[in-house]
Amino acid sequence: MLDDRARMEAAKKEKVEQILAEFQLQEEDLKKVMRRMQKEMDRGLRLETHEEASVKMLPTYVRSTPEGSEVGDFLSLDLGGTNFRVMLVKVGEGEEGQWSVKTKHQMYSIPEDAMTGTAEMLFDYISECISDFLDKHQMKHKKLPLGFTFSFPVRHEDIDKGILLNWTKGFKASGAEGNNVVGLLRDAIKRRGDFEMDVVAMVNDTVATMISCYYEDHQCEVGMIVGTGCNACYMEEMQNVELVEGDEGRMCVNTEWGAFGDSGELDEFLLEYDRLVDESSANPGQQLYEKLIGGKYMGELVRLVLLRLVDENLLFHGEASEQLRTRGAFETRFVSQVESDTGDRKQIYNILSTLGLRPSTTDCDIVRRACESVSTRAAHMCSAGLAGVINRMRESRSEDVMRITVGVDGSVYKLHPSFKERFHASVRRLTPSCEITFIESEEGSGRGAALVSAVACKKACMLGQ
Results as ranks from 00 to 15, higher is better:
5 R>A: 09
9 E>N: 09
18 Q>T: 14
25 L>R: 00
25 L>K: 11
26 Q>K: 11
27 E>Q: 10
37 M>R: 00
40 E>Q: 06
44 G>F: 00
46 R>C: 07
53 A>H: 04
53 A>E: 04
53 A>Y: 06
54 S>L: 04
55 V>S: 03
58 L>H: 00
61 Y>E: 02
66 P>F: 15
67 E>N: 08
70 E>I: 15
71 V>L: 11
72 G>P: 01
90 K>I: 08
95 E>K: 06
107 M>E: 06
107 M>S: 07
116 T>C: 10
124 D>F: 01
128 E>V: 08
132 D>Y: 09
132 D>G: 04
134 L>K: 02
135 D>K: 07
143 K>F: 06
145 P>F: 12
145 P>G: 15
146 L>I: 00
156 H>C: 03
157 E>T: 05
159 I>M: 00
166 N>E: 06
174 S>H: 05
175 G>H: 04
178 G>S: 05
178 G>M: 03
180 N>V: 00
182 V>N: 00
182 V>A: 09
186 R>Y: 00
188 A>K: 00
194 D>F: 14
196 E>T: 02
199 V>S: 05
202 M>S: 00
209 T>D: 03
209 T>V: 13
219 Q>D: 15
222 V>N: 00
223 G>H: 00
225 I>A: 00
226 V>S: 04
228 T>V: 00
230 C>N: 04
231 N>C: 02
233 C>G: 07
239 Q>I: 14
240 N>Y: 12
243 L>C: 13
246 G>A: 03
250 R>F: 15
251 M>E: 15
258 G>Y: 00
264 G>N: 04
264 G>A: 10
265 E>N: 00
272 E>I: 09
272 E>N: 08
272 E>Y: 08
274 D>T: 01
276 L>D: 14
277 V>N: 15
278 D>R: 06
278 D>L: 07
280 S>F: 07
281 S>I: 01
281 S>F: 09
286 Q>F: 07
292 L>E: 06
292 L>R: 08
293 I>T: 01
297 Y>I: 00
302 V>F: 05
307 L>R: 11
308 R>V: 09
312 E>H: 14
312 E>V: 13
316 F>Q: 08
322 E>F: 11
328 G>V: 12
329 A>V: 15
329 A>T: 08
331 E>R: 04
335 V>F: 06
340 S>P: 04
356 G>P: 06
359 P>L: 09
360 S>R: 11
362 T>M: 11
363 D>P: 02
364 C>D: 09
364 C>V: 09
366 I>E: 13
367 V>E: 00
373 S>K: 06
375 S>G: 10
376 T>I: 11
376 T>K: 08
376 T>Q: 10
380 H>K: 12
381 M>A: 12
383 S>R: 04
383 S>C: 07
390 I>M: 06
392 R>P: 02
393 M>N: 03
394 R>M: 08
409 D>P: 04
416 H>A: 13
421 E>N: 15
425 A>S: 13
432 P>M: 08
433 S>N: 12
434 C>G: 08
434 C>W: 04
442 E>L: 12
449 A>P: 02
453 S>C: 12
458 K>W: 07
